[in-house]
Nucleic acid binder design. Structure first.
Lengths: 240, 240
DNA sequence: AAGTGGTCTAGACCACTAG
DNA sequence: TAGTGGTCTAGACCACTTC
């Protein structure tokens, strides 16, 4: 038998991912929820605690508990780990190079857990920091999950992409799985990042996951690490 | 005023970092501890919970709560994120190339928060996976923290270095701060990793921290990512 | 003053481990 | 059977926000 607080947690997730409580909205008070589920308030709090730890909910003392919104600055940097030499993080300026619809290849289908040759949307973005191109993102999205997605919707608010996924398509990115390697740039990548051909790049292959570890986005990034680096903290709470 | 459970947590940390309970040993039962601190058992549990989350303690139902030992396999991989192409992780074979005493340069002193020109120990290790050299570690340690450290002690159990820090010098590595870049190898690095000069490497600059975020080790790694990658999971509990 | 989340208590009962 | 951690309850009181 599953513990009660796990069942309550699962039930809360249903309500959130089902759109019953929208991002930015407050969920009912702890007393109400506990009464509704027929559990003690301590048990309800334990379920909420775990969702707060997973960044799905945020508590605001004296006000209520809210569904997180991904456009908040600290949500933004939760998944953006590129920092400049002095450790400062900055919002990148995003420029969309291309936006088109295609079919998934075998590797992509495997990564995204979709059928081979499933329809996908491909977006290529150049991200600039301090006015210089530093990062090239190649994003692949399963088309069925993003109905009616247009380039315009993407570019108009592209610096908070996960917020777009959440507000327009009800998709909460909770976790990402990243693999990093050092590579030599291809010609087109070098051109877009305006670098010499002999300069190595950091390649990040990221799969973004939502509830139940379902993949929703594949993103391959190439980073010019001349003046920037990828920052990672292991062993405790989130990086600041 | 600090919450009670925070005070209890701080007190527990004192007992652990002070060597009162040694790694691998069980701490007193929750009932005993609660009585000793004069708090409710729920409050004591909350303090213990946070230390379990920080990987300082582990609970074993029916047996007791133990101070973490860093030689456990899952502790090993907590800070070793290099995996092969298929995602499998493997214990590296370690070969010590050099071991010598020196003085810290300015950058190292800043990273380790020690006086300029402080005595340090420098170790250079080559780590092999599947019989091939994949990783070159350049480790810098503040000598005063590691009295009597010899090459022999290091090499004899070098595949669990943090366990050595813990068992011999009472230093618990709790957190690491890593910065990743793509670089071209210097001649000596290329030679030790047996790679061509034109092949890019992943550079990892890691500072290891103990209680109160005190730095205890600086490690610069160079990784041949031809058949391996650096694996990172963001947004939830520890990677498996 | 009313409503919210945050802390703390005291105790019951369950699940697991060991002798 | 005894001892440990794991779950769950019911309620008191505090701190913060809003009206």
């Amino acid at each position: 038998m599953q513990p009660l607080y796990e069942q309550v947690r699962a039930s809360l997730i249903e309500s959130i991912s089902g759109g019953q409580w929208r991002p930015g909205e407050a969920i009912p008070s702890e007393a109400e929820l506990a009464a509704g589920f027929g559990v003690a308030i301590g048990t309800l709090r334990r379920a909420v605690d775990s969702l707060v730890a997973d960044q799905v909910l945020v508590r605001r003392q004296g006000k209520g508990t809210y569904v997180v919104q991904h456009d908040a600055p600290r949500q933004m940097f939760h998944f953006f780990h590129v920092a400049s030499r002095d450790g400062a993080r900055e919002h990148p300026a995003v420029h969309t190079v291309s936006f088109r619809r295609d079919r998934a290849d075998a590797a992509e289908a495997a990564s995204l857990d979709i059928a081979p040759a499933e329809k996908v949307v491909r977006i290529r973005n150049v991200l600039s920091l301090q006015g210089r191109p530093v990062l090239l993102d190649d994003i692949t999205l399963p088309a069925p999950l993003f109905p009616g997605l247009t380039e315009k919707a993407f570019t108009s608010r592209a610096n908070t992409i996960y917020q777009l996924y959440q507000s327009r398509f009800g998709i909460n990115v909770l976790r990402t799985d990243e693999r990093l390697r050092a590579v030599m740039p291809s010609a087109d990548v070098a051109a877009l990042l305006q670098i010499a051909a002999g300069k190595p790049l950091l390649e990040i292959r990221r799969v973004a996951l939502t509830f139940r570890d379902r993949p929703v986005e594949l993103r391959v990034s190439h980073v010019d690490t001349t003046d920037h680096h990828y920052h990672n903290t292991l062993g405790k709470g989130m990086p600041a």
